[in-house]
Amino acid sequence: MNSTSGISPATTAIDAPQDLLIVLRHAPHGSSWLREGLDVALVAAAFGKRVGLLFQGDGVFALLQGQSSGPLAQKGTHPQLAMLEMYDIEHLWVSEAALAARGLPVDSLMLPVTSLEASRIARLMHSHPHTLIF
C-alpha cells in the first residue's frame, strides 16, 4: 500500500536508491534536529549528491502547511522545505503510521510525498547504505 499526493510520480520509486537517505524524526520547533538534518540534505544536494528524505515520528510535523516562526521564536524549517525542489530533492517519503498516529491526512501536507507502511520503510532503509538519522 502506498499513496501519493500531488503531481510527482517520481517520488513513488523506493527501489531507486539515492546517494544519501536522511531520516528526519523531530518536529520543526523545540530542538535544532530537524533544521540541522535538512541543512545536511541541502548541502549534499548542492554538492551534486542525490538525496532522499524520510519523515518519521514527529518529523512528519515538518510537512504541515501554514507554519510560521511563532511564539517560540525559532525560525522554523518551512523555508528550507520550500527550497527542496530547487535543490532537486524530489524523493520524499513519509511514514504512514506516523501520519495516522497524529491524525494527518497525506493530502494535507505542503509537499508531494509518498507514504510508506512499515515493511516498505524497512526496504527503503535496507536499499540505502548511506543513511543519516536526525
Binding site: L20, A44, F47
Partner: peptide, 11 residues
Amino acid sequence: TGVGQLVDAML
C-alpha cells in the same frame, strides 16, 4: 569546516 566534508567522508 562545512557539512559538505561530512558528506564526502561518508561516501
